Simulated assay, not measured.
Amino acid sequence: MSVELIERDLLLESPAALPLGLASSRDLLGRIGSLETRLARTEREIDAAQAVRYRVFVEEMKAQVDPDCARRGRDVDSWDGLCDHLLVLDRAIEGDTEDQIVGTYRLLRHDVAIAHGGFYSGSEFGVDSLVARHPGKRFMELGRSCVLPQYRTKRTVELLWQGCWAYALQHRIDAMFGCGSFPGTQPEEHALALSFLHHNAVARGEWAVDALPHLYREMDLMPSEAVNARRALFAMPPLIKGYLRLGAMVGNGAVVDQAFNTTDVLIILPISSISGRYVNYYGADAGRFASAS
């Protein structure tokens, strides 16, 4: 029943992004209307993305940052220098490119993470054991996803995914993972959605991942028979719901992030699990939305 409900509410309501051949720039990863997605090209663009993150995480969600970040109005950490930064720009906004950034995502490739001590989400979930169980696979971590309030629509979420998809294909990624966040630090406030995830989407077997024992918070807050799937999906953050549509699983247990004022779950999405209809829609090769390596 839950899978049917997810599939019924497809992302395909949004218009498809233009293929690369119709794009105005070689590194464009996708376009819907006036919105475009691509990687940051300059330090100034990364700085502008960090300013967007500050507006969302600190000013809106009340995350705690160090005094220097607060003075500069930027969300910055040591991982920024290791990651690629995916941007969503609204070309209808007058001004410089930096003024047009309305959403961003941070992408960390497997080889870069291993060379620098691991993945960011390893501080909350047992992702090292997950990676070790798949020695022949290339992983990518998605993080720091945020979109300005007026752009939180299916169109923007879809464009973020299109950028991640093109990037993953370009770099021959086998699986993606990253933290998906619910607002606030009281998991009980999200009992319906978390219980739905526990009963319907927890990863098993070779893809199983647990929250670290000292951070583990229970997701099984309601019995299965008491969970209304439609209401649970409605109560879920759009990004998490979007990943479920694609075929994602979640880790076992949630983690409360006091600094960011969120309750986190781990999203796990093997490329092989993505529904064929989405592969056909987004493009089965990197050439559709991404430039050649």
Rank of each mutant, 00 (worst) to 15 (best):
A113S: 14
F234S: 14
R41G: 12
H110I: 00
L215K: 13
V56Y: 05
A16V: 12
E124A: 13
S78A: 15
L39A: 10
W79C: 04
S291K: 10
Y216T: 00
L108K: 06
P187M: 09
V250F: 03
V3G: 12
R245K: 15
S224I: 10
I267C: 08
L246K: 03
G136K: 12
A254S: 13
G21A: 01
L246Q: 03
E225S: 06
Y151V: 05
E13S: 15
V52G: 01
A191F: 06
F289A: 07
I46K: 07
N200K: 05
R53G: 00
L12V: 11
G21T: 09
L20S: 01
T153H: 02
V250K: 03
F196W: 06
E225C: 04
Y278G: 03
V256K: 05
E45L: 04
P238E: 11
Y278N: 07
V52M: 01
P149E: 01
E188W: 01
K137R: 15
A16N: 12
L266Y: 01
A63M: 09
V88Q: 02
G178T: 08
R230C: 08
L148Y: 02
L169I: 08
T263N: 07
G126H: 04
D84L: 02
I240F: 09
G143E: 00
G143I: 03
R138S: 14
I6S: 05
G33K: 06
W207Q: 06
D174P: 02
E218W: 02
F260V: 11
R53E: 09
T156V: 13
A208L: 14
R144F: 13
Y167S: 08
D68N: 12
E7R: 15
T156Y: 00
Q64L: 12
W165H: 11
I268K: 07
A286C: 11
H214G: 07
L39K: 10
D75R: 08
G247S: 04
L244V: 06
P187V: 12
A17D: 08
Y243E: 00
A175G: 11
T262V: 10
E218G: 05
E98N: 09
D84A: 06
V76C: 13
R8W: 00
G122Y: 11
R109K: 01
Y120T: 06
A248S: 11
D75T: 07
R204M: 04
D285Y: 14
R144L: 03
A113L: 07
Y278V: 05
R231S: 13
M219T: 00
R144Q: 08
N252K: 12
A193V: 06
G122N: 04
P67A: 08
A113G: 04
I173R: 00
R38F: 09
D84W: 03
